[in-house]
């Protein structure tokens, strides 16, 4: 394809991506260097027969005018990145100095907003991804062994948790595990504890969100692995059988290696999707015990009255950096493949 025709074919989509994906990253970065204007205060003297005192009040008009004139706020450099709500350099080094052991140190760090969100996001990603891979493979093998007529309906039902709107899916589960919902109330009866609530305990909240994550993404890995199972070469399987390999050994030494490229693909997609976990926290109203990076950005932007653009920008930049780190191995691998093909 000539450069000229390539250019005209790619122009619309490239423009859309540059304007609404690449440029916003720049805009987020610029925002993160600024901080919103503080309210303009005026000090006036108010005198009454008993004497004079100084009164400080907010000059609403001047504040509005200032915010109108410079909507970005005032330049703050990288201060937003290292302040208490983000990387918290001062607090971290204080904790390092003052704490006796590592456990205590991490407990102090964990109380800082950004690290708390980072901890949840990573924990969620690291726990959900392997569970989804393993269970998806197990279900795929199970469905593959089913008699033919059951396969279609099984796939139909399995697709539902994945294509459901994440917010709606988490609400559906949330209403069931609610203290008055079918699962929540039954659990209370089983443990004979009327105060038992999945919302009240941090551990149970995390488990609830992780279970939702597995429920939501398992269909994806199941479908991909199921399609992969259809392409396992029969001759190899038969040869393995003749050599006396048991079902389990065939699984371990023939099927799994055959599916390996798919495992890498699924892992990549799962890591990307799990790292942006956001809607379930809104759906389960879990923000008291579990906040992800995406959720704290959302929360900054939702700040009533004056959204914290600077703070949201700084967290966004660091989240994008996290995504880049996650993706690096894949990018390097693809780059090598491409070079090998080119030569």
């Amino acid at each position: 394809m000539t450069h000229r025709s390539f250019f005209w074919f790619i122009l619309p989509t490239l423009t859309a991506m540059l304007l609404f994906i690449a440029l916003p990253i720049v805009s987020v970065f610029i925002q993160s260097l600024y901080v919103g204007h503080e309210q303009v205060l005026v000090v006036s003297k108010s005198c009454d027969p008993f004497g004079c005192e100084e009164v400080t009040s907010v000059d609403t008009e001047a504040t509005e005018a200032l915010r109108e004139a410079e909507p970005l706020g005032k330049f703050n450099g990288i201060d937003t990145y290292i302040n208490r709500s983000h990387l918290a350099f001062a607090e971290v080094s204080a904790a390092w100095r003052d704490t006796e052991n590592l456990g205590e140190f991490f407990r102090q760090i964990y109380n800082l907003r950004f690290y708390k969100a980072l901890a949840f996001t990573l924990a969620y990603t690291i726990v959900v991804t392997p569970f989804v891979l393993l269970l998806g493979l197990a279900v795929a093998v199970g469905v593959n062994n089913l008699p033919r007529i059951f396969k279609g309906p099984t796939i139909f039902v399995s697709l539902l948790p994945m294509i459901i709107t994440p917010l709606v899916g988490s609400l559906i589960l949330f209403w069931m595990v609610d203290a008055d919902g079918v699962i929540g109330a039954t659990l209370q009866r089983i443990f004979d504890d009327n105060a038992l609530s999945l919302k009240a305990s941090p551990t149970l909240t995390w488990i609830m969100l992780i279970v939702y994550g597995i429920w939501h993404l398992l269909p994806f890995s199941f479908i991909v692995f199921y399609a992969g199972l259809q392409t396992v070469p029969t001759e190899v399987m038969e040869a393995a059988m003749i050599d006396g390999a048991s079902k389990w050994e065939r699984m371990r030494h023939v099927v799994v290696p055959h599916l390996m490229p798919l495992v890498i693909f699924v892992t990549l997609i799962l890591l990307m999707d799990n790292f942006r976990v956001f809607e379930p926290i809104v759906g389960f109203s879990a923000e008291a015990h579990a906040r992800s990076l995406s959720w704290i950005i959302f929360n900054d932007l939702r700040e009533s009255g004056s959204p914290l653009y600077g703070s949201a920008g700084a967290t966004s930049m660091m989240t994008i950096l996290g995504v880049a780190v996650l993706l690096t191995p894949v990018l390097i691998r693809t780059w090598r493949d491409f070079n090998r093909k080119a030569h």
Binding site: I25, S27, V28, Q31, I297, L301, A312, V323, L326, L331
Partner: peptide
Amino acid sequence: FWILMAALVFRAMPHITLVSGYLL
């Protein structure tokens, strides 16, 4: 190839990070 790679990186970005760039 580079456009496809950039698209892969864009695909991975949490949408809310972009939203914070749109608002202002």
